[in-house]
Design a protein around this nucleic acid. Structure first.
Lengths: 157, 157
DNA sequence: CTAGAGTAGATGAACTTTCAACTTGTAGAG
DNA sequence: CTCTACAAGTTGAAAGTTCATCTACTCTAG
């Protein structure tokens, strides 16, 4: 039998509920923005990571780590993106097992349009309701939270 | 053609990435906690809402609103919960179309165990890395964000 | 009382995600 | 060299989610 549960007090409870609600609602809004460009959130993130990588290309495993997807899930999603012509696969010169995923020009074009919508959404729903100070404090807190769970994923600076 | 994209500046960008990373990682940790009790996050939330409702029962539609699910999704999820014996359905006395979903004793027992694990997870991964002040500030900010998107869902007090 | 519009919920097909194999290739030990 | 262990990626089935549609009931206007 586990020890008695240390419940959250009222203030904590309320903060936690706000977290759940905000995350849910924001996700929904951003999803709506991306769907205007025929992209899901996971797909969008893949395009973003590729676009920021040297040569607009990444090994499948690196990409999977970046977007926090399982390799299997990434395979399926990249299949869809490849079908749409937004990325392509080529085998990795250095490692015979490896596969590189490359962002195509067409993919880059779609990404630019989608990124515009997406950033506007983030601004409207997350930045605008807060002061700059509040937003940065939120970011700093969540950085601590994330680093506590996955120190390796920390972004330098 | 849309107007030029107003990108996030470096600090904002970093805060946004921290948000994404923290939310993803936290979700994953809490999912692992719940799966020890054979519950998914959506299922868990349904049990929580039922347990807090008068008579441990709610109309399907009210429940759907509470957990921010579509009615269809709720139907499927409640099917699973009913199969496990944790909730049951009974037709609504007042409205012939309506269905009430009731938490069973067995469901309540499962919920208590799951809630223990879940709260410990929230503490460990979200509260503990932050000071109380930081956590409450985070909650307050996210409450503003949520209310901006869905004023109706606001919790009084 | 009854026709039409609207609400509650269920259903099944399409799609996405997860999980456990499976294939192919690398690398180190002997 | 070649065996074994492991890493990269894919595959297909099971589980979960979404979407359009369907049935049953309520409510209001005439």
């Amino acid at each position: 039998m586990p020890p008695a549960t240390r419940w959250l007090d009222d203030e904590e409870q309320q903060a936690w509920r706000s977290y759940l609600r905000a995350v849910r609602l924001l996700d929904e809004q951003l999803r709506r923005g991306l769907e205007q460009h025929q992209l899901s959130h996971p797909e969008y993130e893949i395009l973003v990571w590729l676009s920021e990588s040297p040569g607009r290309a990444l090994r499948m495993s690196e990409l999977a780590q970046g977007v926090l997807n399982s390799r299997s899930r990434l395979t399926h999603t990249v299949n869809r993106l490849e079908g749409a012509g937004w990325v392509l696969r080529r085998s990795c010169p250095a490692d015979g097992r490896g596969v590189e995923c490359v962002l195509t020009d067409s993919g880059y074009t779609v990404l630019q349009a989608a990124a515009h919508t997406h950033v506007e959404g983030v601004r409207r729903y997350l930045l605008d309701p807060l002061t700059r100070k509040e937003f940065l404090a939120l970011g700093a807190s969540l950085a601590k939270v994330a680093d506590a769970m996955d120190p390796s994923g920390r972004r330098t600076t």
